[in-house]
Design a protein around this nucleic acid. Structure first.
Ligand SMILES: [Zn+2]
Ligand SMILES: [Zn+2]
Length: 393
DNA sequence: ATGCTCGGACCGTCAATTGC
DNA sequence: CAATTGACGGTCCGAGCATC
């Protein structure tokens, strides 16, 4: 509120005094300035999802002729006693170099019933040559030593992009390949080999990162709110509610175009964009992303997912319809236009059974909102001995 | 051209955790 | 106990539609 005036284009982000503390890094990425929001919007603005101000009646209400009803919306007090997962390790000093090398040389212990297939159990996955086994088959994830993580088994997470592997992907026919359901060794994501793992020290604690933590019921039902924060990053926040088929797909109902940014954020590694496409998200319109594939590890869970969607513009209305009904998300339900609901459910139930055997591949077919109809594959390996609440048998 | 809806990107806050 | 950071409870941008 001073000298600045007449910026060529007035945008919510144009306030020059709101520039984030620009670092000495000149070429990092064009940072947009911060949007300022009021502490408490009026009821009308809140309902309309529009900008309010601190006056009562507010500017917008005056323009709309709603001055009478312009009053603060109710805000509920913040909950207390919310349990959190373990915090990420705080910055010690330097020794990033050391950490990385210690990861690379740590011994890895084979575990789980799939483990006794064919991998050398003492070899670090980080040094494994890349055309041995697909993830989920043979040992894969680091085992932390008990003294290091006695009561903190999920102390890290990492996400890696594997867009380079795209050439081996297959687009399934609608309805799917039989083998996707029946052959547990088939991995459409990787074919016969896994990507190089990043050697970056994980930076995110995700105590409850595994969706398995929430596995109390496998029915196709509304998912609880707590789902949301498990996978929130600056680039993705799952919606409050979703009815989607597929329970383990941590990235599924966030914008797929944000997948790469999410991956970068979680891994702190710049992700190559060799085969990627332009984002449709307004904030990242000039960025390249791969909307179809992510690979991630949360604590002792590893998972890989791909979305291969058919363009089906005629299905776009589905999202709209469900929006109208309630604030629910799209897809999966018969009333959303999923003609394969029964099969989806059955396959899904089978997948659940597989999960309980430590390793599973989830494949399902359904409408993925604006992205169309297609195939989602989720491959997971669970390295834990037990879930919260009960044992994996 | 103008108005409305609403998913989800963005924000500010503040208490749970951590490191001392 | 201060610093850090998870995550809650919002605000509101802007694409997509609807209507004029
Ligand atoms: Zn207002
Ligand atoms: Zn108002």
């Amino acid at each position: 509120m001073d000298s600045r005036e007449q910026s060529p284009i007035e945008t919510p982000y144009s306030g020059s005094e709101n520039q984030p503390p620009s670092d000495d890094e000149p070429d990092v990425m064009p940072q947009r300035s911060k949007r300022i929001q009021v502490k408490n919007a009026c009821v009308n603005c809140q309902r309309a999802c529009k900008k309010c101000d601190n006056n009562r009646p507010c500017n917008r209400c005056i323009k709309q002729g709603l001055s009478n009803s312009c009053e603060d919306s109710k805000r509920k007090p913040r909950q207390r006693g919310i349990k959190r997962g373990p915090y990420k390790k705080r910055k010690k000093k330097k020794d990033n170099e050391q950490i990385v090398s210690s990861i690379k040389t740590r011994n890895y212990i084979r575990k789980g019933r799939r483990a006794d297939r064919k991998t050398d159990s003492t070899q670090s996955p980080l040094s494994r040559d890349s055309n041995t086994l697909a993830p989920g088959y043979g040992q894969f994830s680091p085992q932390f030593s008990p003294e290091q993580n006695a009561d903190n088994p999920y102390c890290w997470s990492r996400t890696t992009d594997i867009s380079q592997e795209r050439r081996i992907f297959r687009m399934p026919p609608i309805g799917g390949f039989e083998e996707d359901y029946n052959d547990s060794s088939y991995n459409p994501l990787f074919g016969s080999h896994s990507p190089e793992l990043s050697s970056i020290e994980p930076e995110h604690s995700q105590a409850q990162a595994s969706p398995l933590n929430m596995l109390s019921d496998v029915a196709l039902t509304e998912k609880p709110n707590s789902y949301k924060n498990l996978y929130s990053t600056p680039f993705c926040t799952p919606p409050l509610t979703n009815y989607r088929l597929g329970y383990f797909q941590s990235n599924l109902h966030i914008p797929l175009s944000n997948a790469r940014f999410d991956a970068e954020y979680r891994s702190s590694v710049p992700i190559p964009s060799a085969t990627v496409e332009k984002s449709t998200q307004p904030d990242y319109q000039n960025s390249l992303v791969d909307p179809t594939v992510t690979c991630r590890e949360h604590g002792q869970m590893s998972s890989y997912s791909s979305d291969m969607m058919y363009e089906q513009p005629e299905k776009k209305h589905i999202r709209r319809l469900s929006q109208l009904l309630d604030k629910t998300h799209i897809s999966g339900r018969p009333e959303d236009g999923n003609d394969n609901f029964a099969e989806n459910v059955e396959a899904f139930q089978n997948d659940i059974a597989a999960v309980r055997q430590n390793t599973h591949i989830t494949s399902n077919y359904g409408n993925n909102g604006i992205y169309g109809y297609g195939h989602h594959t989720e491959t997971q390996l669970d390295h834990r001995n037990s879930l919260s609440g009960y044992e994996i048998s």
